[in-house]
């Protein structure tokens, strides 16, 4: 995996909480539950548009949740056609580097569409 410290990753449809594609491990070994949770978090951040409407034309870039043991990064995948996908990466706290992971994820999300 291109992101150092990554434990698992998935692409989640955040309207339905459905994991479109998964790889590696998921929290509690349950990709579907992780996807449902991911969808809830994204919905919470976007539906009230509390954060993304703070300034005009703002756009959600990523959501980062840190825990004692890891980082959880969520990044919407922008497609030209209609889709509501978010890339989810679970990082090991000790091995992962948040800044690096964030940049790599940005690239990953772009490449997903560009290749």
């Amino acid at each position: 995996m291109a992101i150092p410290g990554a434990v698992g990753a998935s692409i989640v449809d955040y309207t339905t909480g459905f994991p479109v594609a998964t790889t590696g491990a998921a929290p509690n070994n349950d990709h579907e539950a992780a996807a449902a949770g991911t969808a809830d978090v994204v919905q919470a951040a976007t539906s009230r548009s509390l954060y993304v409407s703070a300034v005009p034309h703002d756009l959600l870039e990523d959501l980062i949740i840190t825990t004692a043991g890891g980082y959880h990064l969520l990044r919407p995948v922008q497609t030209d056609f209609d889709s509501r996908l978010v890339l989810y990466v679970w990082l090991d706290r000790a091995q992962g580097n948040l800044a690096v992971a964030r940049l790599r994820m940005q690239k990953l999300a772009d490449e997903l569409i560009a290749t």
Partner: peptide, 9 residues
């Protein structure tokens, strides 16, 4: 990538 995501959706 686009095609796959689109078809899946």
């Amino acid at each position: 990538g686009e095609l796959e995501l689109c078809v899946l959706g």
